[in-house]
Design a protein around this nucleic acid. Structure first.
Lengths: 185, 185
DNA sequence: GGGATTTCATTTACAGGTAAAACACCTGCT
DNA sequence: AGCAGGTGTTTTACCTGTAAATGAAATCCC
């Protein structure tokens, strides 16, 4: 969440919402202490981190009622949206988590009867996982709730701005996913 | 990081970067399975979460070299940018973390000689924390590196888009910080 | 002034993640 | 066939964060 990130608007400023959020306050503090530093990146990275933290808290509400954590829901969701069985390794890649984390989640989710495993006949190392009926029903019941909740959370931003924001985030994310490995110092 | 979030562009689309990032792929999968659902929020929330996860990994690089985690750096940064002593409670608020987490971090950071505590004379429950010279030097040395690194990470996005992105994120964050409590279901 | 209440910080017990090692199994080479 | 090396998954040890309980001191208020 990077509370130390933040920076004053360097220029552009489409809708001019530079005042009012905590990040801009943090940025002003840094600029007062280190006037020479280019605090530009904080305006983006600090805000992304802070938004993610706040959204995650809020987002969890509908999930918690179902007794699921966000990573657990992600795993179930991956199984649901791909429509076919997945191996633990594929699930790890699909949900961007480590193999060990997936192993633990699978253990709990199978114990709860939401997921079933089936051993591969050819390669006895791998397992194939699929949702049980209960698991599929849970995801299908939860997803509309979840999306409605998210829509409510975002409703404070005007519709055209939402579209632009989504597009710009897509641009950034595309860059990050493509080129981040190269930057890894 | 919400790998289950994602949704196809509903309209607008400024720069049209909807193809290419993982979130748009996830959204397409969901739409194939549940064509009736409004997957709009995923385009924003899913991307924010994924960006935050990727940025955090990348961002940590300069910090790790100094043996600091991001939350530790946030704590030191809060002390540096405010310029005065802070109590544990204030530090918790300033870094958006729990009191218990701050207690643990302070313990380690004081052991490492980066932070000093001083008891309050009036109220013997509270302590006042400040950076040691070593702590201040560490932050001042690290911050420019950190910012340069962040700038490099963001350099893939064109400058005017960066400004717009910062502004839109500011708008969203302002909304979230102001109205999120009210939404807490 | 002294007990009830509130506030601030820390401790405790625990849940969840990670990195590295361990396992189990497959595959290619000789 | 048999072994070297690679791959897929799980296990282990550990670290960090959280929630809830605790401790300690201030404040309220009769």
């Amino acid at each position: 969440m990077t509370a130390s990130d933040g920076r004053s608007a360097t220029g552009s400023g489409a809708t001019g919402a530079a005042r009012g959020d905590t990040v801009s306050a943090v940025v002003r503090q840094w600029r007062a202490v280190h006037p020479d530093l280019d605090t530009g990146p904080m305006e983006i990275i600090g805000r992304i981190n802070r938004c993610a933290a706040l959204l995650q808290q809020a987002e969890d509400a509908p999930l918690r009622r179902a007794g699921l954590s966000r990573p657990e829901f992600d795993l179930l969701g991956a199984l649901r949206r791909t429509g076919h069985e997945l191996t633990p390794g594929e699930l790890a890649r699909e949900t961007f988590s480590s193999g060990a984390a997936v192993t633990k989640r699978l253990k709990q989710l199978t114990e709860r009867g939401l997921v079933e495993r089936r051993g591969d006949t050819r390669d006895r190392r791998v397992a194939h996982l699929r949702l049980t009926d209960a698991g599929r029903d849970l995801v299908d019941g939860l997803l509309p709730e979840q999306l409605a909740y998210e829509a409510a959370v975002l409703s404070g931003v005007r519709a055209p701005d939402r579209g632009e924001l989504a597009a710009l985030l897509g641009e950034l994310l595309g860059q990050l996913e493509g080129r981040l490995d190269a930057l890894r110092v």
